[in-house]
């Protein structure tokens, strides 16, 4: 049950598009900043495989400039931080 949080930076002027894209993506919850071009993304996937696929999917988003992880919880063994 991996849980991760990220700061997602959209490409210029594409914050709304990024929010829409992430909202439409399974396992994703977002908290957009109101006065900065940043979106907080929390992912919650059932297993590592799904998480990998989700990350691949996220990489393909054209409106996403960068994604940086701020928190990770990989599985029940508490190997995440």
């Amino acid at each position: 049950m991996p849980v991760f949080s990220y700061l997602a930076i959209p490409t210029e002027g594409n914050k709304d598009a990024l929010c829409a894209a992430l909202e439409a993506t399974d396992y994703c919850e977002i908290i957009p900043a109101e006065n900065q071009e940043v979106v907080v993304l929390v992912t919650d996937t059932p297993d590592k495989e799904t998480d990998k696929r989700l990350q691949a999917q996220l990489k393909k988003l054209s409106c996403l400039q960068s994604l940086s992880m701020t928190y990770g919880h990989a599985d029940d063994n508490r190997t995440g931080n």
Binding site: F4, K59, L64, Q65, S66, L67, S68
Partner: peptide, 8 residues
């Protein structure tokens, strides 16, 4: 340059 990277 940090670019489109997803890193655990």
């Amino acid at each position: 340059k940090i670019g489109k990277s997803v890193s655990r």
